[in-house]
């Protein structure tokens, strides 16, 4: 379970994230929507402890990520916007390496099965990652999350740049993870994907979580309208 309590990040006088309160429970997919610079990636980076909060608290399974960095990282799996793997190694070798770093050791057959389950084409499993598309790399990332048996998944615009088919496949994998009880926090620009896969949706602007709704309580047009209104509000505030 992910929890942010008055989580704030400031860079000098600039506030990247302002008193964020957020809770993502097991089996939840919380989608954070917002324009560039809204604070989505900052939120993810704070949970990853890549940056330290100025104020407030970020916890994973009740463990403060700043105090229990190693333990919390064992619990989570992270897929950035553009998952970069080692291009000279195969998908299987990359998966084996990253699983090993997380203390999980699998046989070659098990790793192949994980990659197959993540939707990677069989004939690419033993090919070098340099020949992979972005979607294929993201699938290796999902395989890694499954392999690590992560209870928390942090995704930073994972479907950005993916073609609709690959994006759809990725969403299906996320739903599988949801069914396994994984708590997912996903930053995205894709309203349609957020509505289709998310259980909760948050709309951020200028470091503030303006709206927080349950996905099934709002239709896609309503979500779009709410989002655009928020963005207009943002422009008004800015001007």
């Amino acid at each position: 379970m992910l929890e942010a309590t008055k989580l704030t990040k400031k860079y000098g006088s600039f506030t990247a994230l302002n008193a964020l309160n957020l809770s993502v429970k097991q089996g939840d997919i919380f989608c954070l929507l917002g324009a560039n610079g809204a604070g989505k990636s900052t939120t993810i980076n704070l949970f990853l402890n890549f940056i330290e909060p100025t104020e407030g608290l970020a916890t994973i399974n009740s463990l403060d990520v700043t105090l229990h960095s190693k333990e919390t990282k064992q619990l989570l799996s992270y897929i950035p916007e553009n998952l970069m793997l080692y291009p000279n190694l195969t998908g299987l070798e990359n998966l084996d390496f990253f699983c090993g770093l997380g203390g999980k050791n699998y046989s070659k057959e098990q790793l192949e099965e994980l990659l197959k389950q993540s939707g990677l084409q069989v004939d690419f499993i033993h090919k070098r990652v340099s020949s992979y598309s972005k979607g294929m790399r993201q699938k290796v990332g999902i395989a890694l999350a499954s392999a690590r048996e992560a209870s928390v998944l942090l995704l930073d615009e994972p479907t950005s740049g993916l073609d609709p088919k690959a994006s759809n496949e990725f969403s299906e994998l996320l739903l599988d993870m949801k069914d396994k009880g994984v708590a997912t926090l996903m930053a995205t620009h894709d309203l349609f994907r957020a509505k289709a896969t998310g259980t909760h949706i948050g709309i951020m602007k200028e470091g503030v979580l303006i709206h927080q709704v349950e996905a099934n309580s709002i239709s896609l047009p309503e979500l779009e309208e709410l989002y655009l209104e928020t963005m207009k509000l943002s422009q008004t505030v800015s001007s």
């Binding site: 990853l48 890549f50 960095s69 190693k70 919390t72 990282k73 064992q74 989570l76 799996s77 992270y78 950035p80 998952l83 970069m84 793997l85 990253f98 770093l101 997380g102």
Partner: peptide, 8 residues
């Protein structure tokens, strides 16, 4: 980033 994300 991915490496650091593994807690190393």
């Amino acid at each position: 980033k991915l490496l650091k994300g593994q807690g190393i």
